[in-house]
């Protein structure tokens, strides 16, 4: 039955027919655009909070692993396992502890960002050339000064590349946050899964959001690193 409904032809695009046929109806979209605004901002909220907390944790862990080399393997192992657990499974397995709602969604999303961010920050720090560090030490920098004035600035490309991946990934995963009771654009997609107009608008907004965040971080990268305007993937 559902299959029949979904396979209705594309030609009927206007009026009541279009809606009852689950079509792509521009009129409906214009009239109902309001309903996407709140979930859109929920989605931004989930993304920004999760990536923000994730970055704070991953950054601290990376500094720890940078200082105490032996902690790197266990940290990267644990973050990798967290990354491997499917998000939907995590949303349900967390619920006995964190209940239904934003908290569960955010805890799971944070767990996802850790591996990406940690791995990228470590790569960035490891890629700083030994000669540059030697030069810094020769100028009398302490370890702490070396870290903040030399190593971290030079690691910025990798760090921000990680931030971009983490952000777009989180926006995608947040569409499943409704399983945890976290709302967002995914809740709308799921409500009318077979209605083309709905799917296109909600899905399109998620993709748009990812593109905007990606460009924002790319812009940040240019501002933060005037010394290498050219490169970067």
């Amino acid at each position: 039955m559902r299959a029949l409904v979904a396979q209705v032809q594309l030609q009927e695009r206007t009026g009541e027919d279009c809606i009852s046929n689950n079509g792509f109806c521009p009129d409906w979209i214009v009239e109902n655009f309001d309903r996407y605004i709140d979930p859109f901002f929920e989605h931004i909220f989930l993304t920004v909070v999760s990536v923000g907390i994730g970055f704070a944790i991953a950054f601290s862990l990376a500094l720890l692993a940078h200082r105490l080399r032996w902690t790197m393997r266990p940290i990267s192992g644990v973050t990798q396992v967290l990354y491997t657990v499917p998000s939907i499974a995590a949303f349900f397995l967390l619920q006995p502890y964190t209940g239904r709602g934003n908290l569960t969604a955010i805890v799971a999303l944070v767990a996802y960002t850790l591996f990406i961010l940690f791995a990228n920050i470590m790569t960035g720090l490891d890629n700083v050339s030994g000669d540059v560090k030697d030069a810094g030490r020769g100028m009398g920098l302490t370890d702490r000064q070396l870290l903040w004035r030399v190593e971290l600035p030079l690691a910025l490309p990798e760090i921000l590349a990680g931030l971009r991946i983490a952000t777009t990934t989180t926006i995608g995963l947040a569409t499943l946050a409704f399983f945890a009771g976290g709302g967002g654009l995914g809740a709308l997609i799921e409500q009318q899964l077979f209605f083309k107009s709905n799917v296109v608008v909600a899905g399109g907004l998620a993709v748009l959001l990812a593109a905007v965040f990606d460009l924002l971080i790319l812009g940040l990268q240019r501002v933060a690193m005037p010394w290498r305007r050219a490169a970067m993937a």
């Binding site: 991946i165 777009t168 990934t169 926006i171 995608g172 995963l173 569409t175 499943l176 654009l185 995914g186 997609i189 799921e190 899964l193 077979f194 799917v199 909600a202 899905g203 998620a206 993709v207 990812a210 593109a211 990606d214």
Partner: peptide
């Protein structure tokens, strides 16, 4: 990466 799997499925 940016295309949510749920949106793709839907």
């Amino acid at each position: 990466r940016a295309v949510p799997s749920l949106a793709l499925l839907a």
